[in-house]
Amino acid sequence: GAPPLPPYSAGGREVTMKKGDILTLLNSTNKDWWKVEVNDRQGFVPAAYVKKLDSGTGKELVLALYDYQEK
């Protein structure tokens, strides 16, 4: 199953993602919540729920390892 959710501390809205989604990583300075862009929406997802990909394009991409439903 998915890892436990860290307390929400990102101070911005969250976004929903599905397992297998490829998201653009915008900011990973917060260790628990990373800012991503998905379907032209920006928001935060739990860092433990995604994995960085080596895209080779200069853009940082992450793979959704679990479904996440915004609150």
Score class of each variant (00 low, 15 high):
G1E: 15
G1A: 13
A2E: 09
A2P: 15
A2N: 09
P3Y: 05
P3D: 04
P3N: 05
P3E: 05
P4G: 07
L5I: 13
L5F: 06
P6Q: 01
P6G: 02
P7G: 08
P7Y: 04
Y8W: 12
Y8A: 09
S9L: 11
S9A: 14
S9Q: 12
S9Y: 09
A10P: 15
A10K: 07
A10I: 12
G11T: 14
G11P: 15
G12D: 08
G12P: 06
G12L: 12
R13C: 13
R13F: 11
E14Q: 15
V15K: 02
V15Q: 04
T16E: 08
M17S: 00
M17G: 00
M17R: 00
K19E: 06
K19S: 06
G20Y: 03
D21V: 03
I22P: 01
I22L: 08
I22H: 04
I22N: 02
L23W: 02
L23Y: 09
T24A: 11
T24N: 09
L25M: 03
L25Q: 01
L26W: 03
L26C: 05
L26F: 04
S28C: 08
T29Y: 08
T29V: 08
N30T: 04
N30L: 07
N30F: 05
K31D: 13
K31M: 11
K31S: 12
K31L: 11
D32N: 08
D32T: 05
D32G: 08
W33H: 01
W33G: 00
W33V: 01
W33D: 00
W34R: 00
W34P: 00
K35I: 14
V36Y: 00
V36W: 00
V36T: 01
E37I: 08
E37M: 09
V38R: 14
V38T: 15
V38Q: 14
V38K: 15
V38Y: 13
N39L: 10
N39A: 13
N39H: 10
D40A: 07
R41A: 12
R41C: 09
Q42C: 09
G43D: 02
G43R: 03
F44Y: 14
V45A: 04
P46V: 02
P46F: 02
A47M: 04
A47L: 02
A47P: 03
A47E: 03
Y49M: 06
Y49R: 05
Y49N: 03
Y49Q: 03
Y49W: 07
Y49T: 04
V50D: 00
V50H: 00
V50S: 01
K51C: 11
K51H: 09
K52M: 12
K52A: 08
L53F: 12
D54T: 13
S55P: 10
G56Y: 14
T57R: 10
T57V: 13
T57D: 14
T57P: 14
G58T: 14
G58C: 07
G58S: 11
K59Y: 11
K59W: 09
E60G: 08
E60A: 13
E60C: 10
L61P: 02
L61R: 09
L63A: 04
L63Q: 10
A64Y: 01
A64P: 01
A64I: 02
L65D: 02
Y66W: 13
Y66M: 05
D67N: 06
Y68R: 02
Y68D: 00
Y68W: 07
E70H: 11
K71F: 11
